[in-house]
Design a protein around this nucleic acid. Sequence first.
RNA 1: GGAAGCGUGGCAGAGCGGUUGAAUGCACCGGUCUUGAAAACCGGCAAGGGCGCAAGUCCUUCGUGAGUUCGAAUCUCACCGCUUCCGCCA
Length: 430
Amino acid sequence: MLDIQIFRSDINAVADTLIKRRRHEFDVKAFQALETERKQLQTNTESLQAQRNALSKEIGVYKKNKDEEGAKKLMLQVGQFAEQLKQNEERLAEVQSELRAILSSIPNVPHESVPNGIDEQDNVEVRRVGEPRQFNFAVRDHVDIGENLGQVDFDRAAKITGSRFVLLTSRIAKLHRALAQYMLNTHTEKHGYTEVYAPYMVNANALFGTGQLPKFEADLFSVPVGDAGKYYLIPTAEVPVTNIFGDEIVKLENLPLKFVCHTPCFRSEAGSYGRDTRGMIRQHQFDKVELVQLVHPEQSYERLEELTGHAESILQGLDLPYRVVTLCSGDMGFSAAKTYDLEVWLPGQNAYREISSCSNFEAFQARRMQTRYRTESGKPDYVHTLNGSGLAVGRALIAVLENYQQKDGSVTVPKVLVSLMGGLESIEPI
RNA sequence: GGAAGCGUGGCAGAGCGGUUGAAUGCACCGGUCUUGAAAACCGGCAAGGGCGCAAGUCCUUCGUGAGUUCGAAUCUCACCGCUUCCGCCA
């Protein structure tokens, strides 16, 4: 959520930026009309409330003095505007909730360093790290590799559940676990993150906080709770972890707060039918190790570079070639002010594919969650939030299978994973 | 699932229809005292919002929502959460 103050003072500039940079249009006239009404209603309502409060206090005094007559007179006075006050209060609540609804459906404004653009075509490559390996045989993709090894099974997953799920077994299931373990160990031991175990189901309020609701309900899975309520399966650990300090004022000296959390992620992938239907690239359920930081506003852009580096270090440790891309304004997520994507080289696709997304949300999420810190002067102010995948475990598995494949169909275990694999150096067919 | 109890400021904990945004203690901040510190003493200390250049002033908030009332932290209803006991269970 953007600061309503900038809509009050400089609405045309914001509207302009949002159209040019995010192709997001909103009705400035309607907003302003509501805002004018709000201002008038609020002033009016509050002055009536003040009158009522003053009279009520007086009534109290009369009652104490047993002057029922005097009290009666004042009660009549209040009665004269009671109905008007009630109507004002109701309308004011309506207007404010309409304003809030508009405000909460407006995306974040991109940082000035974010390149302008429409879609992923306009993303800007920042750097490439590592050289794609040259193969002296016909490369296979992870589906062929995994099925040939007899340890990746899409058909049975579809039988058990449906499409876009996978069943991993034996060494590959263990490799998947080892990858997550390696990521968690690295981030906790080398990068100073605190490990978190968090709920996999969250309420609507938490999803509002990070920006998935109200606009993107269709992307989420939910389960009914009680008679009317529901919980949502998390689409990313970002949701429970970023919300840890929602509605709280954290101590300045505790910043930055850095958390790492390994969870499954559940996404309905509505609107992506037909895309990446082969293999494990786009699943309804996948594991991810997520990095989350709550930081002092002045530091958030340095922290974004740092956090991106933490995610990169996993790819480097696994010796996987990748590139870093700055998302253009049109390709960024709803809540982000700036995003770097890490794209890993997949020989099976002969392409770089996203494996991590690292973003600075500035105060956009903090404002929704009401997460603040106390400034040096003691005044509360919003923190900045960041997160990034460090990394998507399922996609990391794909990358390892494809980049470490051998001519005979086996897959070499990356050096850093050997001990986590109990000494196993190569995955063979079973 | 059944029964009982409880949700108040950073924490603990009063208040149970009237001038209470809320006693008191702890924590925290400033001051006096002290060579310094501690102790003692004095003072300060919730958040959000409106109007205002400002000083200030007004409104809202005692789990959430609705209601009763001139007036609600206090009464009513619903919901959410927590605790304890019983049952069940990994």
